[in-house]
């Protein structure tokens, strides 16, 4: 079973709207990808490597100009918006499982990151944030004299 959101033409709203609201309520219980206030949560992976952390976030269909990334006090904040093309025609019936709207995610980074060297790329709907570790926290082998 997978969740679907059914968008109905305006004149069909009413009972169906109630049903959609019920669906939405159940979905918010079982599916953490959409919060009740209409925001959504992109899936994120973090890979910890020796000299850097790499964060990847799936944000397909988002314009890179609609994404903001900032780092403050070791908290990395990514926020943006997936804009929906609004074509509110009465006969424009469509079915959607996609989430639209604003998203915001914050991560407390365990390692100290060199904020000057953070890089972000956007490729095939995946945001890749490379966070190089500052040299003083990078582990190094100490020779016994």
């Amino acid at each position: 079973m997978f969740s679907t959101i059914t968008h109905e033409p305006k004149h069909n709203r009413g009972v169906l709207n109630l049903r959609n609201e019920m669906d939405r309520m159940f979905r918010s219980f079982y599916d953490d990808h959409e919060t009740p206030n209409g925001h959504w949560t992109p899936s994120v992976d973090i890979v910890d490597e020796k000299d850097k952390l790499t964060l990847t976030a799936e944000i397909p269909g988002v314009d890179k100009n609609d994404v903001k990334i900032n780092l403050q006090n070791n908290i990395l904040n990514i926020e943006g918006e997936k804009k929906q093309e609004l074509e509110e025609k009465d006969d424009n019936y469509y079915r959607s499982e996609r989430y639209y709207g604003k998203f915001c995610r914050s991560f407390t980074l365990s390692s100290e990151v060199d904020s000057e060297k953070i890089q972000a790329d956007f490729d095939n709907g995946v945001l890749v944030v490379t966070l190089p570790k500052s040299e003083k926290v990078q582990s190094r082998q100490i020779e016994i004299k």
Partner: peptide, 30 residues
């Protein structure tokens, strides 16, 4: 209620256009 298979199927959207239909599917990273 069983848990959704929420991410193994890429989310799709079917939309009517002036010329027909569009099937839109999210496949980030492919």
């Amino acid at each position: 209620m069983t848990a959704y298979c929420k991410t193994c199927l890429p989310p799709a959207e079917i939309k009517q256009t002036d010329n027909g239909f569009n099937i839109i599917m999210e496949l980030p990273g492919s």
